[in-house]
């Protein structure tokens, strides 16, 4: 009994209903993309959880490195002027 090579891994994204983003829900193994769609449907939408599915080969995803999280995301922290709450607008000014 030698181990079979796995079918490739696909990451699955499901749109729960119209108007929402596709959201990552997990992965399936499949030999090809069409099969991955069918597997995603059977594994992740047995209870009307979705109206649309994306499948992406896991190896095609480049993820940011948590060790670089500081370099990537910290610089946004001190840009407080990007947020509307930064500005004090006199009460008299309406609808702004």
């Amino acid at each position: 009994m030698h181990p079979n090579p796995d079918w490739p891994l696909y990451e699955i994204f499901v749109r729960a209903r119209g108007g929402l983003d596709h959201k990552h829900v997990g992965s399936v193994h499949a030999a090809d993309a069409a099969m991955a769609l069918e597997h995603a449907r059977d594994v992740y939408t047995r209870r009307l959880e979705g109206v649309s599915v994306w499948v992406v080969r896991s190896t095609d995803i480049l993820a940011s490195d948590p060790a670089e999280a500081d370099a990537l995301f910290e610089p946004a922290r001190d840009k407080v002027y990007r947020h509307p709450t930064f500005y004090d607008i006199p009460k008299e000014v309406e609808t702004l």
Binding site: V28, H39, D42, V43
Partner: peptide, 11 residues
């Protein structure tokens, strides 16, 4: 032949 196929046949 694969878990995912168990699910497909069951559906």
């Amino acid at each position: 032949p694969a878990i995912e196929e168990d699910l497909g046949l069951a559906n």
